[in-house]
Simulated assay, not measured.
Amino acid sequence: MDLGVSSMQFGTAERGFMLSQDGPLDMRMDGGRQPEQITAADVLAHIDEGSLYKVLKFYGEEKNARLLSRALVESRYMFQHLDTTQGLANMVSSLLEGTTRTDKLGRHAHPATKTFQALRILVNNELNELDYAMRLAHYYLRPKGVLVAISFHSLEDTIIKRHLQGVDLDHTPATIGLGLAKHRTALSTYTKDEMERITTKAWKQLTKHVVLPSEEEVASNPRARSAKLRSALCL
Rank of each mutant, 00 (worst) to 15 (best):
G4V: 07
S7T: 12
S7Y: 04
M8S: 04
Q9T: 00
Q9I: 06
T12R: 11
T12K: 11
A13F: 03
A13Y: 06
E14V: 01
E14Q: 12
R15V: 01
Q21V: 00
D22R: 01
G23A: 03
D26Q: 07
M29L: 10
G31M: 03
G32R: 09
R33P: 00
R33D: 14
E36N: 08
Q37V: 04
A41R: 03
D42P: 10
V43W: 02
V43H: 07
H46T: 15
I47P: 12
D48G: 11
K54V: 07
K54D: 11
K57S: 15
K57C: 12
Y59Q: 02
G60R: 06
G60E: 12
E62F: 03
K63S: 12
L67W: 01
L68H: 02
L72R: 03
L72N: 05
L72D: 03
V73A: 00
V73Y: 04
E74P: 00
R76Y: 04
T84P: 07
Q86T: 05
L88A: 07
M91I: 01
S94L: 10
S94N: 13
E97F: 05
R101L: 15
D103Y: 13
G106E: 11
R107C: 09
H108P: 10
H108D: 12
A109V: 01
A112I: 08
T113S: 12
K114R: 14
K114A: 11
F116N: 05
Q117G: 05
Q117D: 02
Q117A: 07
A118S: 13
R120E: 05
I121H: 08
I121Y: 04
I121W: 06
N124I: 01
N125W: 08
L127Q: 09
L127P: 13
N128F: 01
E129F: 04
D131T: 01
A133M: 14
R135E: 12
A137E: 06
K144A: 13
K144R: 15
G145S: 07
V146A: 11
L147A: 08
V148G: 11
V148T: 15
V148A: 15
S151C: 05
L155H: 05
L155M: 09
E156H: 01
I160M: 10
K161P: 12
H163M: 09
H163G: 03
Q165M: 13
D168M: 06
L169T: 05
L169D: 07
L169H: 08
H171D: 10
A174T: 14
A174F: 00
G177K: 02
G177N: 06
G177A: 02
L180E: 11
H183K: 15
R184P: 03
A186I: 14
L187M: 13
T189A: 00
Y190T: 02
Y190K: 03
D193A: 14
M195C: 11
M195A: 07
T200L: 07
K201G: 03
W203I: 09
Q205S: 13
L206T: 14
T207F: 07
K208F: 11
H209D: 15
H209L: 14
H209Q: 15
V211M: 10
L212Q: 03
P213R: 01
E216C: 03
E217F: 04
V218M: 08
V218C: 13
V218K: 04
V218G: 00
V218I: 15
S220K: 02
S220T: 12
S220W: 00
N221D: 13
N221I: 02
R223Y: 00
S231I: 01
L233W: 09
C234E: 03
L235I: 08
